[in-house]
Computed example of a mutant assay.
Amino acid sequence: MTRVLVSGGTGYAGRFIVEHLLANGYKVTVGGRTAPDPGFFSRDVPFVPLRLDPDADQIEAFDNIYYFVHAAFDHLPGKFRGGEGDDPQGFRRANLDGTVRLFETARDAGVRRCIFLSSRAAYGPRQPGTLLTEEMYGKPETLYGEVKLQAERSLLSLCGHAFVTASLRATGIYGPAGPGRRHKWADLFETYLAGRPVAPRSGTEVHGDDVARAVRLMLDADAVRVNGETFNISDIVTGNREILSVLQRVTHCPHPLPEKDDMPVNAMGCCKIGALGWTPGGKALLERTIAELAADVANTSRPFSAVGL
């Protein structure tokens, strides 16, 4: 079996990647600051300590590793944009300098392929309604987006015949969070069910399983078709009203839904990775996932009181 090291494997996105690779015959090792709790993954997974530290010599973590998937990111809990808090220098040092050092270490250790989980934030702001495509020049307005874009460029500079690289610009990732974790819409669900106002909001979303399938595609594809390339990973445009309408249906909550957000959304064009055979789950997967998350709420919530109406 092919050995893959996944940094940040216990993170929100990383867990989907680890589980998907395990299910498809890869031998996965998780790298991170702390080992996963027992039972966090569907089966036991080897762990190696791995830090976002440009001064650390971590080449031993890559022993017998053929592929490296870099999904780790150091930020304030619950925040990516603005995740630097009051320490932008430390944020850059860890997430850019530390990431580049891991890329270089992987190459020096003989890793054959490296996949970087980047972000749509690398594009920066565009005129509302603009379709984001990979040939656009990145103009990020946040430190988060700037770090992701610079890491992409650093990885590109390292690619070659013996070190195949690709970056995946993923949009907002949704799905079940795993044992003991809160999913991304947990606060939204709680706000709505408590009868508090919910602001209109729309955005692009992709299921974590679809992100994981994109990662596997990068590992399995002909190197000529992915080496040095960047691919958008996105699925559908949705918003608070649509998400909560499923929750309302499952829980029979009487509270009114938020207004529809009429602001045009900058969708991401995914024709490039689509040409390699990637197809996301679409609206059917979104509705099924929301219904499953909502069912968990319905099974644990107390009945609505007249006070909350």
Results as ranks from 00 to 15, higher is better:
residue 143 L to T: 10
residue 119 S to Q: 08
residue 173 I to P: 00
residue 95 N to E: 08
residue 92 R to D: 10
residue 130 T to D: 09
residue 85 G to W: 00
residue 169 R to L: 05
residue 102 L to S: 00
residue 133 T to W: 11
residue 133 T to M: 09
residue 150 Q to M: 14
residue 152 E to L: 07
residue 105 T to C: 07
residue 93 R to K: 14
residue 135 E to F: 08
residue 151 A to V: 10
residue 168 L to P: 03
residue 119 S to K: 07
residue 134 E to A: 05
residue 90 G to K: 10
residue 111 V to F: 01
residue 110 G to Y: 06
residue 129 G to D: 10
residue 162 A to Y: 15
residue 118 S to C: 12
residue 127 Q to M: 13
residue 97 D to L: 13
residue 133 T to G: 02
residue 91 F to P: 01
residue 132 L to Y: 01
residue 147 V to W: 06
residue 141 E to H: 13
residue 86 D to A: 13
residue 176 P to A: 11
residue 163 F to H: 03
residue 118 S to G: 09
residue 84 E to V: 02
residue 115 I to A: 03
residue 166 A to I: 01
residue 138 G to D: 07
residue 164 V to F: 09
residue 95 N to G: 06
residue 150 Q to R: 15
residue 168 L to E: 02
residue 134 E to N: 09
residue 176 P to H: 13
residue 159 C to W: 07
residue 132 L to N: 01
residue 160 G to P: 14
residue 129 G to P: 07
residue 98 G to S: 10
residue 104 E to W: 05
residue 107 R to Q: 15
residue 90 G to T: 12
residue 179 P to H: 13
residue 125 P to D: 12
residue 159 C to A: 14
residue 143 L to Y: 05
residue 114 C to W: 01
residue 107 R to I: 07
residue 98 G to F: 00
residue 162 A to N: 15
residue 165 T to M: 02
residue 152 E to W: 03
residue 149 L to M: 13
residue 119 S to I: 03
residue 166 A to P: 01
residue 121 A to D: 11
residue 159 C to V: 12
residue 148 K to V: 07
residue 177 A to L: 04
residue 172 G to E: 10
residue 170 A to Y: 11
residue 179 P to E: 14
residue 101 R to Q: 15
residue 153 R to F: 12
residue 131 L to A: 12
residue 178 G to C: 02
residue 174 Y to V: 05
residue 117 L to G: 02
residue 113 R to C: 05
residue 175 G to R: 00
residue 113 R to P: 01
residue 149 L to A: 08
residue 151 A to H: 02
residue 117 L to C: 12
residue 88 P to D: 09
residue 107 R to M: 13
residue 144 Y to L: 09
residue 156 L to Y: 13
residue 157 S to C: 03
residue 141 E to L: 12
residue 156 L to R: 14
residue 158 L to A: 06
residue 176 P to F: 08
residue 144 Y to A: 08
residue 126 R to I: 06
residue 169 R to N: 02
residue 151 A to Q: 06
residue 144 Y to C: 09
residue 140 P to N: 08
residue 157 S to T: 11
residue 143 L to H: 09
residue 92 R to H: 14
residue 110 G to T: 04
residue 157 S to D: 12
residue 98 G to A: 11
residue 130 T to K: 06
residue 116 F to I: 04
residue 167 S to A: 14
residue 133 T to H: 15
residue 163 F to K: 00
residue 95 N to F: 08
residue 178 G to T: 02
residue 113 R to A: 09
residue 83 G to V: 03
residue 150 Q to G: 09
residue 137 Y to V: 15
residue 138 G to V: 05
residue 155 L to H: 04
residue 156 L to P: 01
residue 131 L to N: 09
residue 102 L to R: 00
residue 159 C to M: 14
residue 161 H to W: 13
residue 120 R to E: 14
residue 164 V to A: 05
residue 173 I to V: 13
residue 89 Q to K: 15
residue 141 E to D: 15
